[in-house]
């Protein structure tokens, strides 16, 4: 008799665990399925991107002998698509979708005395790497607001090992090289899923569970814009943005 009770207890425990796993599994699946897509465009003529004089460092000017470097504060494609716009969910996230930190490690490269990419988006507490491909010394010097994140300044001479770091709070952080004053980029640290537009201005934010959200688009010169978006099960939300050229 006693044994039978035990068996029942074990069985019900197993069933409970299975159910729990199923429910949890579904949640993860749902989060994986939903997405928000769209394009970001520039309305008007893109401002002229000034050329960069790299003559003070022969390595840099040689690397750009055939393709002179230019500023990257507004990068508009032929169809008006805006590159390097960061899109993230500024309202409506909760639970795992908000707190889960991606395991992939985005890379910020110093190549031909430019930052590749010019804008690197990441989640709060997500690890990222700074590497150098150059045969000239750089220093990697992010300048956060010390009241929000803690800045640092590390040298990266040729062949330097990667610097691996993360940021503890959401913030748009300018990053610069003091040795090459034209080298200026951005770490855009956001909470939750994010995406950066490609050369055509398109983006996809993955891992968004069904729900109602506010999506924010950040562009370094034109600032931010917001839009309400609904993501349904099996139906991605869409949000297109247009920034006016100034």
């Amino acid at each position: 008799m006693r044994n039978r009770y035990n068996l029942a207890a074990v069985l019900s425990a197993v069933i409970l665990v299975c159910c729990g796993a199923l429910i949890l599994g579904q949640k993860v699946n749902a989060a994986g399925e939903g997405k928000i897509t769209g394009t970001v465009k520039l309305d008007g003529t893109a401002p002229h991107m000034k050329g960069i004089d790299m003559s003070k460092d022969p390595y840099c000017s040689k690397a750009h002998a055939s393709d002179p470097g230019h500023l990257e504060t507004v990068l508009a494609g032929q169809n008006g698509g805006l590159e390097n716009v960061v899109l993230y969910i500024s309202e409506g996230l909760s639970g795992g979708a908000l707190t889960e930190v991606p395991t992939e490690v985005p890379v910020f490269n110093q190549k031909n005395c430019m930052y590749m990419p010019h804008v690197l988006a990441m989640d709060v507490n997500q690890k990222f790497k700074v590497v150098t491909s150059d045969q000239t010394a750089h220093n990697i010097h992010p300048l956060p607001n010390p009241m929000i994140n803690v800045g640092w300044n590390q040298s990266q001479p040729p062949g330097a090992p990667a610097v691996e770091k993360s940021w503890k709070a959401a913030e748009v952080i300018p990053v610069q090289c003091n040795i090459h004053p034209w080298m200026h980029g951005w770490f855009v640290v956001v909470k939750g899923p994010y995406a950066t537009t490609d050369a055509n201005g398109s983006y996809t934010i993955n891992n968004v569970p069904p729900g109602n959200y506010t999506v924010t688009a950040w562009q370094e010169t034109y600032g931010t814009q917001m839009q309400k978006v609904t993501v349904a099960a099996g139906k991605p939300g869409t949000a297109d943005f247009t920034f006016k050229a100034k």
Partner: peptide, 14 residues
């Protein structure tokens, strides 16, 4: 250690 707040970086890794 570098001189934080200035362009002088840390060379501890290098």
């Amino acid at each position: 250690t570098g001189l934080d707040g200035t362009p002088m970086p840390s060379f501890a890794d290098n």
